[in-house]
Design a protein around this nucleic acid. Structure first.
Lengths: 205, 205, 205, 205
DNA sequence: ACCTACGGGACGTCCCGTTTAT
DNA sequence: ATAAACGGGACGTCCCGTAGGT
């Protein structure tokens, strides 16, 4: 089925291994030497597939971001209801450990590249847009079906969720404790309850 | 009279100028050469005051963090009332431009140092604690005076405020727009309203 | 075909450019920084080819000395007759401008290295020997062919020529005038006439 | 009689000791540290007497040069006859060991300062002029008294003597042998014989 | 005249990212 | 895909000459 040539497999492997390094140590903090050690290839081998360290970093970011998004989305299509979908997403973010070591690639890349590398900055900006779009889409659908209060601003909601999660993640990383993340989940759950337009018996109790 | 020696003045100047560089480009992304250019000193001048790049970075972080905290605290003592103090703090965070270019030193350092430099990581962790402590103190006082609802958890409140602000800042930097920050202010104001135990006519309506 | 690798070309270029600097400013007076500026290379580039400043200075001296000797020898093989050869050599010394700026590498290096750097001193001593040897060879041949008076001491003759030329060069440099050198040529020509054993009509008059 | 204050004596001592260092290692090759060690004073002590390293080097050169000249002149006034005076001078140059270690200060300074330090170069040029002037004076007197052939050019004679001596000294230093100097003496003696206008019985034989 | 403070800039080592040859 | 060549530039140590304070 997915017949990949040997080269393609090697390339994928490099990207995955590079993603872990870049996400942990940053672009500047990752050396070709480190990449060689991690991939088991020589410099020439790496340059055969990627024209520069930056090109590899870009690819690695794309990889890390899809992996992160996949982990956060999970099997969301199987969840019914807009608010439930959003709760599901929050829950995944809080409880899944990062599929790529080093924390959230979006935060990592945004922070390092903000005053420097424009290519990576652009990729991070795009990633943010993608994540926002996803939430906006769900919210819009919820409004359309009447499940979500119509006065809800989907874009603001997206930024709210993303901001609260990323902020909590920052604190959690620094404290090496999950408390902040779990508190954030509680808060977001409450907030999502407030935009829920469907009558719930349980909540009233 | 605070007679500073020439050396002390030079040292302070180095720290301030280094703080800007480190905060913008990160520890790895800042070179001694860049520091030399920014300070107008040569190697000898720099290493006379700091035993290593890391030592200078540490001092620069402390400087950047005090500056950031000072900007966020402003004249908070002149504000009366716990909730008002917190609102004031949020307002400063959202509306002050960073006193040190490159954004929030806490976020920058935390992200870069998390999987690497332990010294800087420690400083960032300490900075977070300091900020949390400040908020906790205010909240506790508010509870003591009866101004703040007694069921409020000061620590959670602190993380909530910090997390929301930092998360919104991340988005704002990536979007190069103040919207996310301003939305965060609105949300936090509302939330602070909810922990306010003092009877307000306006709120009742 | 003499395919030089890129590195070999770079190396040669460094040596030639370094020779000019060292010959003008001496070993102590030449800095790696100056060499970097002159060659357009950075530390890494220089130290790839030479293990130390001293090693580079040694190579540069060898280069400067060959260039100086080549200039002084010129097309001496085309000149017939021992005395004529010597006159030719003197004439070249007096009239050629130094192929490497900064004057005679032998004098420069000898003076600076005499009470210091033994490596360079040794090279200078070797260079002197080489020059002496050249003159001695010519003189011996002249004696063998009967062209030069048999009582001539080749070694003394060599020192005489070299000493007079170098001494005159020293004065010329200090006076920034060619007079001393030209007077030295006149004197040496007369002296060479006196060791000439071949019957000359002109001389007899 | 020559009551010097303590300070004046210290100053003279510094100059004498510095002269030895500068003459051996050159201006660049001599460090303040070395001067401290040689004089037994601290930096502050040195700077009390001389405003800079260069100023001290200048003074040191003047001292070294007078010492050298004094050694070469010796008790020349007691020698009668211009040619005899010149022979005497040559003899002193060849046989006296340098009163300041490191060889002839004129050659040393001229070579190092030629493409660099203008102050020292100027002093060396002045020293050469002084030496030339001395010889010129003697030659002129000789011509006036009829002892020296009238067609002799005093200036050329001076350069001839100085050049031959300095050239021979250069070779001698490099060979660590007195041969070149002694050969130079022989040659100069012969040459001085040739400008001698007074009838000599011995020469005629 | 000592001693320390001050900032400059020397030389050197090591590793970086890239290119090339094979 | 390896491995060596290439040149860039990082950080660091040490000593330099000078200035002040005591």
């Amino acid at each position: 089925m997915d017949h990949k040539t040997k080269g393609e497999r090697t390339r994928s492997r490099i990207v995955a291994q590079a993603a872990a390094l870049f996400n942990q140590h940053g672009y500047e903090g990752t050396s070709m030497q480190g990449l060689m050690a991690a991939t088991g290839l020589q410099k020439g081998g790496l340059y055969r597939y990627f024209s520069s360290k930056e090109a590899l970093a870009a690819e690695a970011f794309r990889h890390a971001w899809s992996a992160a998004m996949a982990a956060r989305i999970g099997d969301i299509d199987a969840v019914s209801g807009a608010v439930a979908k959003l709760r599901y997403m929050v829950e995944r973010f809080v409880n899944m450990r990062s599929p790529v070591p080093g924390g959230c690639p979006l935060m990592n890349t945004a922070v390092e590249a903000d005053d420097g590398n424009p290519l990576l900055r652009g990729l991070a900006a795009g990633a943010l847009k993608e994540w926002q779009g996803l939430i906006v889409e769900i919210a819009k659908e919820g409004i359309a079906t009447g499940e979500v209060r119509p006065e809800t601003d989907p874009r603001r909601l997206a930024n709210r969720i993303i901001g609260v999660l990323e902020g909590a993640l920052l604190i959690s990383r620094l404290e090496r404790s999950r408390h902040a993340l779990e508190d954030a989940k509680l808060a977001l759950d409450a907030e999502l309850g407030r935009i829920d337009a469907s009558p719930r018996v349980a909540d009233a109790s």
